[in-house]
Amino acid sequence: MSSSPLRVTVFDYEAGNLHSLVKSLETDFTEVRVETDPAAAVRDTDALVLPGVGAFSPAAVKLASGRDAMRDALLGGLPCLGICLGMQLLFDGSEEGPGTGLGVLSGQVTRLAAERVPQIGWNTLEDTTPRDTLLVESDLQTAYYANSFVCRPTGESARHVIAYTTHERDRFPAAVRVGNVVGTQFHPEKSSAAGVRFVRAFLREAASHVTRGVGL
């Protein structure tokens, strides 16, 4: 592992509480900063975190000036963890409101097809096979959700789903992974010990990419 700390940047769209998230990212091998400028958020960093609070359109507005830079960075291999709204921003757009997502995954974000919306509470994860390493390492089985909208990947992107969750009769992607980019519809930072382990597993993986990168 590299001796210099893993630089982790949280892109803050100024929508809410980042305390638990930042705390879950603070480890003995990370250095966490919070950045409100989207282009700056992907400069001089080893990992990007898109937090989970707020609505799609205001977040897309905050993202707009740095959207291309962020998209390029993610497609170029920058490790990224998008949580809830942050996962939704990885897709093309949302019926919650106007605005352009990062388009790293293709598909739209649509309203949960259920009677009880928002979905608030702990729901079980249905892993795909083989089980993703982050889920193996964390052993996260039940995760906390607070969402009205979910991602609907299309085409090739459907193959990037690593876990599903079902609310009433709507089965939707709980988590996706494409390359080094991971998205979770649940809140790992609110999913108790196993959720924090999931975040830490992501960070360790990001650190291993940095180490490999240095060796090239």
Binding site: N17, A146, K190, S191
Partner: peptide, 30 residues
């Protein structure tokens, strides 16, 4: 919020959307 990794709700004395904003910024999830 820095030590709790399950959701935290704060209630009582909330009057305005600005009060809501303050509680959320302080660490409440709801």
């Amino acid at each position: 919020a820095e030590q709790l990794f399950i959701p935290l709700t704060i209630g009582g004395g909330i009057r305005t959307a600005d009060d809501v904003a303050r509680a959320l910024r302080a660490g409440a999830d709801k």
